[in-house]
Design a binder for these strands. Structure first.
Lengths: 352, 352
DNA sequence: CTGAAAGCGCTTACAG
DNA sequence: CTGAAAGCGCTTACAG
């Protein structure tokens, strides 16, 4: 006790913790406050009543000594790391970082850390990254929109980690789902065009059948249908989610027998490519032809004319995913799988 | 021993680890291989010679059971978390994510995790984030370009964590430094303009005196000096690092008594704003006036005309920072503070 | 070349 | 309302 007190006084004295050697431990707090480590622990966790006066004294000492529980020691005991993981195909993609930012916002408030891992689409990166996260005992994992196999996902849930997927079907044993209302977003965008008297509305998609593209196309069809407008086969082009794809797709639809007065693109990059084609053909946008994007990447507002597009609520997706994970982790784990669908928001600019 | 073997067999059998309960531990490996946990540990770490046959047997069992050491247990013992941290003002900024990607690339290869934390410039976020990372016992921390105070940095080194700063002076006790050759990059860019016979070269800076801006301006001056060209006061405008700033700055310099034939901008956003102004004034770029950016953000290649700019080697910065940290962590810690300077790369496009 | 055992810093039954 | 002690899963002196 005496020796302990002296040590503590020394730490407290000497500008706190030199070289990690004098790091304050729970036992230092306990002896300084004249209680057991059990009590200090319970003051920290609130899992057992502690008399007001004892609590106050302990909290004061914690403050004064700047005590912070060692996460490794705590983790070893609790089998929890207080860490959330996000796996995405491309860590530099702004959507993905916005998702990460949203997760972090929620996680940090609960004293959880967030790690974001990149697992490129090509090659077998995903299983390896998942293996690493599981080995690290990450408490909850968010898996981005992917070709994640059933096996990959099972690996996560089998390890005891909680799982949230960003898209895909809701199914038991596959964790919770958070996704954006893609179909509705595109429906709103096309309806916006219809409301502005555009009638021959073309569509340039990315690869057909791929998840976000498929849903966006459905929104396009539904909006035309609602407006009593036909889907002209020659006004629909399938290409890739790139600027190059947009150029090619726009060339195709703009050369239709009866050209369109608007071109709806499956994402902003395609729309920027379509803008190139329109400019090269001397077609003024939006006077001669309207062009719209989707996602609202930074460049959408920087090109000229600025793109009318739909905002992808990425940050909100991240927030929701983290909250779902924390609910399973902190609250009761039970309850059926849940799905959260987030609304998109139309961003009208100059191009349509 | 018998009971242990049975347990192991069960785990091995039952589709490995159900609910984290049957997680394989070092003792399972040891009993299955018929050696002590000491030996398994040494096979893992390589810190003690193990006979070839024993090693082979143990490695086989590790493989077969899919053993992964528990990071909390290991961390508690070694006082290391095998985690690197990156602190940046804005987690959605592509530079910062590129830095994170570079760090992760190196870190993952050494079985380190990387966490990136956002601490906005405004308000007292930085001390709080640093506190969290230190409390988490993060082994090495990279602090982005900031108004980090001496006290903030001391807090990191005092805790025993290794520190790398991205910019700022090299000084003992402040960790290692990684930075890009900003001055040289701008020098090359302006020399490129001189080589293309531009002679009245204007400069639009962000806030004067701020770190990256200051160095870029120095490169501009040096290049003009080398070419025997004067720095015209009326051709230099100070504004903010935004598109709006670029518009205002361009309006100022383009309305000079004797207008410039080229406008060098301190970053890409400013250049995109300058492009707006030139377009509005009916000035063709680059025929009537050349415009250049700096950083090579995604939008730089998406605007029209595409921006001539300088690539910021962000990913490489991340790699170097992680390597520096790992050197201190894995090798000997000693040695004086080091600085790594990374070359920029000129990216000629249409605008100059 | 190998093993038995201490101990890292916590949390949590168990006991009062 | 509080405390003594076991134990989480590793690594590493110490010993042979």
């Amino acid at each position: 006790m005496t020796s302990n007190t002296r040590t503590t006084a020394l730490d407290n004295n000497g500008r706190l913790m030199v070289h990690g050697a004098g790091r304050i431990k729970i036992v230092d707090v306990a002896s300084e406050a004249g209680v057991s480590v059990t009590t200090v622990s319970h003051v920290l966790s609130g899992r057992r009543p502690v008399s007001a006066s004892t609590r106050a004294r302990v909290e004061d000492v914690i403050q004064r000594l700047g005590y912070q529980a060692d996460p490794s020691a705590r983790g070893l005991r609790t089998q929890r790391t207080r860490t959330l993981g996000l796996v995405v195909p491309d860590i530099t993609n702004p959507f993905n970082t916005a998702i990460a930012a949203g997760m972090q916002e929620i996680a940090l408030a609960h004293e959880y850390l967030t790690v974001v891992c990149e697992a490129p689409m090509d090659g077998p990166h995903l299983p390896e990254v998942i293996r690493q996260l599981v080995a690290r005992r990450i408490d909850g994992i968010v898996v981005g929109r992917y070709g994640a196999t059933r096996q990959d996902l099972d690996r996560i849930t089998a390890s005891g980690s909680k799982l949230v997927r960003l898209g895909g079907p809701l199914a038991p044993g596959l964790g919770d789902v958070v996704r954006a209302a893609e179909t509705e977003g595109m429906y709103d965008l096309v309806s916006h065009l219809v409301g502005r008297d555009y009638r021959r509305i073309a569509y340039i998609g990315g690869a057909p059948g791929v998840e976000p593209g498929e849903e966006r196309f459905a929104g396009y069809r539904k909006a035309l249908e609602t407006a009593g407008l036909p889907v002209h086969q020659e006004l629909v082009a399938w290409t890739s989610f790139t600027r190059e794809g947009g150029r090619a797709g726009a060339t195709a639809v703009l050369n239709a027998t009866e050209p369109p007065d608007a071109v709806v693109c499956a994402n902003d990059l395609i729309a920027i490519g379509a803008l190139d084609t329109a400019r090269a053909a001397g077609l003024r946008v939006p006077d001669r032809v309207a062009i719209t994007g989707y996602d609202d990447i930074e460049a959408a507002s920087l090109v000229s004319p600025a793109l009318t597009t739909v905002l992808n609520p990425a940050r909100e997706i991240g927030r929701s995913a983290a909250q779902l994970l924390l609910d399973r982790l902190e609250g009761e784990d039970s309850g059926p799988a849940r799905e959260i669908v987030l609304a998109h928001r139309l961003v009208p600019r100059e191009s349509a």
